[in-house]
């Protein structure tokens, strides 16, 4: 991960506390969440039927998909509910906030691929 490249995405005010937004980073879409004390980023779609995770209700460090209420842990990317959904997961991305701007770290090879 440390090999990845940091991309400045948006000012923190653009995502209200406990909400998520779809963000376009190059040609890639991510879901970016404001947990109040930090930001977390994941792949955009629920492993179940592709629901937009950014539109879910945030509960603690998880998000609940708006389509069928699958619960995804935003730190690990793992599905924690329902039981038969366990084992599925979404990709997660490191984030940081500097000078009021949220940055997301894209993996090196991915960043390269995006650029190509």
């Amino acid at each position: 991960m440390s090999e990845g490249r940091w991309i400045r995405v948006t000012v923190v005010e653009n995502i209200p506390p406990r909400e998520g937004r779809a963000v376009l980073v190059g040609g890639q879409e991510l879901a970016l969440f404001n947990l109040g004390d930090r930001f977390l980023a994941t792949d955009p779609n629920c492993p179940h039927q592709g629901g937009p995770l950014c539109d879910g209700i945030v509960t603690g460090t998880s998000v609940v998909c708006p389509l069928h209420a699958w619960k995804v842990d935003l730190e690990s990317g793992e599905v924690t509910r329902p039981t038969h959904g366990r084992g599925h997961c979404v990709g997660t991305y490191a984030t940081k906030v500097e000078d009021g701007v949220v940055s997301v770290q894209l993996p090196a090879e991915r960043a390269k691929k995006e650029a190509a």
């Binding site: 400045r8 995405v9 995502i15 937004r21 779809a22 963000v23 980073v25 190059g26």
Partner: peptide, 10 residues
Amino acid sequence: PIRAMETVDA
């Protein structure tokens, strides 16, 4: 949707 303020290039 939010577009990243920084473009991704090589």
